[in-house]
Design a protein around this nucleic acid. Structure first.
Lengths: 211, 211
DNA sequence: TTTACTTTCAAACAAGCGTTTGATACGCTT
DNA sequence: AAGCGTATCAAACGCTTGTTTGAAAGTAAA
């Protein structure tokens, strides 16, 4: 991987397949994606997927990569910022991961697509990525809301934040039709992140002080 | 329709097909649903769908029904409650429509499923149902937030509310894995609706007063 | 160059899909 | 009872899917 020069032809095909699979999976979902289109984009033979990855399922497993999501959480926990600022930062990074097509990690966009209807990999995704993410956000909100938040309020506040973020990805086809000029450039993404953070912090503050 | 007694055998199969289609479409989505399974559940022949509806697309068009969503908005506009109470009512009714499996209108759950990845009917859905819904919510939030909300803030607040509501539907498979005891009974649904309303009203109030 | 192993390829496979067909059975008027 | 239009049915059609196959091409050590 790190040695750029010494890639065999076999390794190159593998990488072309993975790159193509990321694109196609993130665009059409696992079910909607076809092995033939992936191989067409990778300029590889149809049999290549089965030879290198054992099948479509194996290719999905290879493509899924939770490292960027873990890194986001690790970086967030490492800052010396206050909890509210860390929530702003989290939302900013998370929204970028979901919406920025320039972003290196299409993996998370694939993941987000698969949350709605179960695929063979959903159990693994929930166990290794989504579950820890919920827990991380829960701990962060606990720091912000303190003892004023019940467990149920905390859990639902996590859902409120994730729901807002995922909306922009899941409803993208709809939003494009409602507002054809919409583009997810950096300016727009930052504005979205700022809105969700402000909106949510106010919601949490209200819940925490109401009781 | 209204005359219960006078249904021909043909009409009965039509209705069985529609009922079965609602179930299968809402569970597996349009692409994931198969004509054969629909016919199996309806105890009808595979050819029945094409005979009665001209094909799978025609069956989807027949199944889609925006009346419940329109009725929700009409009833909401007809109340004499204040805007904030109307928002609470809207969220309550909308969440019930999305989550309550007892609810007569699986149509809206089908709709919610199709928002993520375009189907032949998405343009119609956006034009006749989702677009007006966004506009309705926008007008309601304008009454609540007044001139303190910019147009962009208003639009994004609409997204925040819809995102929170849709999350519980779209992420249901995930939430079930994270919390196997989760059941969308009336008590739980009411609690969810109350949370989203409280959370969102605080967010909107904050945005409206901040400027 | 020869040998052994890995990788690619066109072609075919079995299964599932939505749809079509032509015969059969039904319900109704005459 | 005869005739006619409608509805149902098993079967097949054409197509796409993921996967398999066996031969050809490539690669690298002996």
């Amino acid at each position: 991987m790190t040695e750029v020069e010494l890639k065999s032809a076999s390794e190159l095909t593998r990488e072309r397949l993975i790159t193509a699979a990321r694109e196609v999976f993130s665009q059409h979902g696992f079910q909607g994606a076809t092995v033939r289109e992936i191989c067409r984009r990778a300029e590889a033979n149809v049999a290549a997927v089965n030879y290198h990855f054992g099948g479509k399922d194996g290719l999905l497993a290879e493509v899924l990569n939770f490292a960027p999501l873990k890194a986001l959480q690790a970086a967030n926990a490492a800052t010396s910022a206050c909890p509210k600022e860390r929530l702003q930062l989290f939302i900013h990074d998370f929204i970028h991961m979901l919406l920025d097509e320039q972003h290196a990690s299409l993996q998370c966009q694939i993941m987000a697509r698969e949350l709605a209807d179960p695929t063979p990999a959903l159990d693994q995704i929930v166990r290794d990525a989504v579950g820890p993410l919920h827990e991380f956000l829960g701990n962060l909100l606990r720091e912000i809301g303190g003892k004023g938040l019940s467990d149920a309020q905390l859990r639902r506040s996590v859902y409120s934040i994730l729901g807002q973020c995922l909306f922009y990805r899941n409803s993208h086809p709809v939003l494009l039709r409602l507002n054809p000029k919409l583009r997810y450039d950096h300016r727009e993404i930052n504005a979205i992140a700022a809105h969700i953070a402000e909106f949510s912090l106010a919601g949490i503050a209200h819940l925490a002080q109401a009781d």
